[in-house]
């Protein structure tokens, strides 16, 4: 019964994500409007047949901007997380492989220091020093976010190292790098994938929050974060201005959370019992 629920969750997440990604990728085909075209006569209009989610303070169609903005947001967040995952996998695998070495100890110390910097604080310092832009936020993401993946990979590699297969490979004289890539890393792949799915959702939420504070991408380019920051001043009088980006963010994160839940139940039922 449990695995059936897991497949439903996974299926729902994948379907939702496909729908969202499709809507974002086909933005210019789905919507006849121009995301940058201003129409001062039609500013802050309520949702109507012509503008499904209304218009913003420059009279731009919010649905069109949401769909177009999704391209920037999703691709940049995905790329940032991918870099963090790759860095984490590499460093974590090396630390696990050479457990107890100087490299391992140094890496653990660096991780301790980075863990003491909450991501929000780090991102704010970066934004203050180098200016507010989406790129700088994503840079902060990569600098901080690999830590979780490195720790997970390291512990998984340490576990896998003690298995009979690895012992056998070592006895057969297999080189260290082959053991790493053929035996150890594949075992880390599943759990890292699960973590990455959840973290992508968290990352989108964090970037949205920072953008909402005005530290993300700057107008007029359509991007979910900058739309949030832009619409904020008008939210109390025309709440529909935030509906588009907020809805797409919520649904995207929901999709990733469902995929994560489903994958976790499927890949690692034991881990699930422990962490929940």
């Amino acid at each position: 019964m449990n695995s059936r629920r897991a497949s439903y969750t996974l299926g729902f997440g994948v379907a939702l994500l496909a729908l969202l990604a499709g809507s974002v990728l086909a933005a210019s085909w789905l919507s006849p409007n121009d995301p940058l075209a201003m129409n001062v006569g039609a500013r802050l209009q309520q949702p109507s047949m012509e503008h499904w989610l209304g218009t913003d303070r420059f009279g731009r169609d919010i649905l069109t901007r949401t769909l177009h903005g999704g391209q920037t947001t999703l691709i940049s967040c995905g790329l940032a997380l991918l870099s963090a995952v790759l860095i984490g996998l590499l460093l974590g695998a090396l630390a696990g492989m050479f457990h107890g070495s100087l490299f391992d100890i140094a890496l653990m110390r660096i991780i301790d220091v980075l863990l003491a910097f909450p991501f929000m604080v780090f991102a704010m310092v970066i934004a203050a020093l180098f200016g507010t832009s989406l790129f700088h936020l994503l840079l902060a993401v990569v600098v901080v976010w690999w830590v979780g993946f490195a720790r997970l990979t390291r512990s998984l590699v340490l576990q896998a190292k003690n298995s009979t297969t690895v012992d056998a490979a070592r006895v057969l004289g297999t080189s260290k790098s082959v053991i790493l890539f053929r035996e150890l890393l594949p075992q880390a792949f599943g759990p890292v994938l699960v973590l990455a799915t959840f973290e992508l959702g968290n990352l989108i939420l964090a970037i949205a929050a920072l953008s909402f504070l005005g530290l993300g991408s700057q107008p007029p380019s359509p991007e979910w974060g900058s739309m949030l920051a832009d619409g904020r001043a008008h939210f109390m009088t025309s709440p529909h201005v935030l509906l588009g980006p907020a809805l797409w963010i919520i649904l995207t994160v929901l999709a990733f959370n469902c995929i994560g839940e489903g994958l976790r139940d499927r890949i690692d039922p034991y881990e699930k019992a422990r962490i929940g």
Partner: peptide
Amino acid sequence: CVGLASVPGFVIGLVLLLVLAV
């Protein structure tokens, strides 16, 4: 739980502010 974990905090805050304050 899954739903709530997918909503940005400021969205909940803004909606509560809109309903309860405004």
